[in-house]
């Protein structure tokens, strides 16, 4: 097949505009301040509006005015997001896309103060990999019956069908990310999930500890 297009990821950031007040006077004050401190930061930047904090009071007219104002300021709202169904409806009525962008958490992708061990081969049933005092990155599958353990965080680019244990010695802010979740067990800092506690099979997932509980996000793009 002749390729009609190439897909390339661009490095231009999409800012998440977490709106705390939609009063234009408040917003313009902050934008002036930003433009003063870091000119061009927002010039033509695509942004996604996060409306969760104002979902109780925001009206359609407020959103329309907000979008107009941002465009005048050379800021380019490409989408907006909110959990509330009524706001979602307003978002779509104003012609924006409803999107879903994860807020960056305070945990690093991999703990940055320790080293990282990279495994390229599939980890097979019966094999165990332990990255002592390190993060672990696996560029392949982890088979059922295999176990990958790290004192730091674990990132798996293939399918995870076996067991993954991060923060094995109790290190904080560790996480497990996998591309294709079929795990037999997930454990972080001694807390674990098995069986039907685990997210839907086949999804990309991120597991982490929040308020002392093991939680997960499904990293779907829809």
């Amino acid at each position: 097949m002749n390729q009609a297009f190439n897909l390339k990821s661009s490095m231009q950031p999409v800012y998440l505009f977490e709106i705390k007040s939609y009063k234009l006077s408040d917003i313009s004050e902050q934008i002036d301040y930003l433009n003063d401190k870091t000119p061009n930061l927002l010039a033509n930047a695509p942004v996604v509006l996060d409306l969760n904090r104002v979902e109780k009071t925001l009206q359609k007219q407020d959103l329309i005015e907000l979008i107009d104002y941002l465009k005048q300021q050379n800021i380019n709202p490409i989408g907006a997001q909110c959990h509330s169904p009524s706001i979602k409806k307003i978002i779509i009525e104003t012609g924006l896309n409803h999107s879903k962008i994860e807020k960056k958490q305070n945990v690093d992708f991999l703990s940055s103060d320790i080293g990282t061990r990279v495994i390229t081969q599939q980890v097979r049933s019966g094999q165990q990999i332990y990255a002592a005092n390190e993060n672990l990155v696996i560029l392949n599958n982890v088979s059922a019956g295999a176990e990958v353990i790290a004192d730091g965080s674990i990132t798996i680019f293939g399918a995870l069908r076996g067991r993954a244990v991060a923060g094995a010695k109790g290190r904080e802010n560790t996480q497990i990310i996998c591309q294709n979740q079929h795990a037999q067990l997930i454990s972080i800092q001694g807390q674990y999930m098995v069986d039907e506690q685990l997210p839907k099979l086949g999804n990309a997932c991120r597991f982490y500890i929040k308020e002392d509980r093991l939680e997960f996000d499904e990293l779907t793009t829809s």
């Binding site: 081969q121 097979r124 019966g126 094999q127 059922a144 019956g145 295999a146």
Partner: peptide
């Protein structure tokens, strides 16, 4: 399949 996976691990190590 599980046992074959194990044997592959042994072949590789």
């Amino acid at each position: 399949v599980r046992d074959s996976d194990r044997i592959l691990g042994i072949l590789q190590s």
